[in-house]
Amino acid sequence: METDLLTLAIVCPLVFLGGLVDAIAGGGGLITLPAYLMAGVPAHLAIGTNKLSSGLGMAMSTWRLYRGGFIDMRLALVPIVSAFVGSLAGARGALLVPESVFEIILIALLPIAAVAVMRKKTLEPDVHAISPERQRRLLALCAFACGAYDGFYGPGAGTFMLILFSAAAHLAVRDAAGQMKITNFSSGLAAFLMFAMAGEVDWVLGFAAGAFGIAGHYIGAGLVLKNGSKIVRPIIGVVLLMLFAKTAWNYFAGQP
């Protein structure tokens, strides 16, 4: 596909905005993927190219959060591997299970997740409530599940990781944001490799949009470093609302 100025004008600003949101609470794909489709990029090519541009941006926010001390690599190693394997398994499963089945599950699940996030204790867990060994096991399990979702369907995967890392594995919210970012980068990388091997990546458009994604992720990661849960909680609520609206629209619009 030939990349023209109109395509860049539509995609690049929205990739910047998606990167900003994604760095804070995940879910940037709810903005960036529709941007590619709106610009007329074919669906599979849009997904693969979006994985490239979002991956470049995610690398920036991951690095910034690491430099800020919010990523413990010793704790992150197993979740990184779990998310990568889960994403590969999810992508394979996507070939076997109709997407509409997963959409029904999401429509039921998302309002519950939104209510949980709005509860004060969900993102303010007792960080000493569980042992380090149990915390590592929970992180690995949550990473695998969210990685499988990322490979199978995708939108909001980082948001679900952040919620589970905080609520289930009892990480402080800013630590959860850091661990989520590097883990989500791993699951996104697995999905990107599969699309790249299938030839479904527009490299020129992906790298151009990726530059804007890097800028958005850089600013978003800075907001996380400064404001912690004060900025994360409302952004998660907005992302979940967007995901619910998008999923419900896709499902009911496709019904006869």
Results as ranks from 00 to 15, higher is better:
43 A>L: 15
31 I>S: 02
64 R>P: 01
17 L>H: 06
46 A>N: 09
60 M>A: 15
69 G>H: 12
62 T>E: 05
83 A>Q: 09
24 I>K: 10
74 R>Y: 02
13 P>F: 07
41 V>L: 03
57 G>M: 01
58 M>T: 15
33 L>R: 04
48 G>R: 01
83 A>E: 12
40 G>C: 11
75 L>T: 09
9 A>N: 09
25 A>M: 09
10 I>S: 02
74 R>I: 03
81 V>T: 13
34 P>C: 12
20 L>C: 03
63 W>N: 06
74 R>G: 13
56 L>S: 01
58 M>V: 11
54 S>N: 14
19 G>F: 00
28 G>S: 13
13 P>Q: 10
80 I>R: 01
57 G>H: 10
53 S>K: 02
49 T>W: 06
21 V>K: 09
69 G>I: 12
54 S>M: 02
39 A>L: 00
23 A>F: 05
74 R>M: 05
22 D>N: 15
8 L>Y: 10
57 G>C: 09
33 L>C: 07
37 L>E: 04
35 A>I: 00
46 A>Y: 08
44 H>I: 03
42 P>H: 14
33 L>K: 01
73 M>Y: 10
82 S>N: 14
13 P>M: 10
49 T>A: 09
8 L>C: 14
60 M>S: 14
70 F>E: 08
50 N>A: 10
33 L>Y: 11
73 M>Q: 09
28 G>C: 14
66 Y>L: 10
41 V>I: 10
70 F>N: 07
65 L>E: 06
64 R>N: 11
80 I>Y: 04
39 A>E: 04
44 H>R: 14
67 R>N: 14
12 C>L: 11
36 Y>I: 02
77 L>P: 00
29 G>Q: 09
26 G>T: 08
15 V>C: 05
58 M>D: 13
78 V>Y: 06
26 G>F: 04
62 T>H: 10
28 G>W: 06
37 L>Y: 08
17 L>V: 15
59 A>E: 12
12 C>H: 05
37 L>Q: 07
28 G>L: 11
34 P>I: 09
78 V>H: 05
23 A>D: 08
27 G>Y: 00
63 W>Q: 03
43 A>H: 12
32 T>F: 06
74 R>Q: 13
50 N>S: 13
65 L>S: 07
8 L>F: 09
33 L>F: 13
63 W>K: 07
11 V>D: 04
41 V>G: 01
79 P>C: 12
76 A>C: 13
27 G>Q: 07
50 N>L: 04
27 G>A: 09
16 F>D: 01
48 G>V: 08
70 F>C: 01
28 G>R: 06
46 A>G: 11
74 R>K: 15
61 S>Q: 14
53 S>G: 05
18 G>F: 00
16 F>W: 06
16 F>K: 02
63 W>S: 11
60 M>C: 12
31 I>M: 02
46 A>K: 05
53 S>P: 03
43 A>I: 14
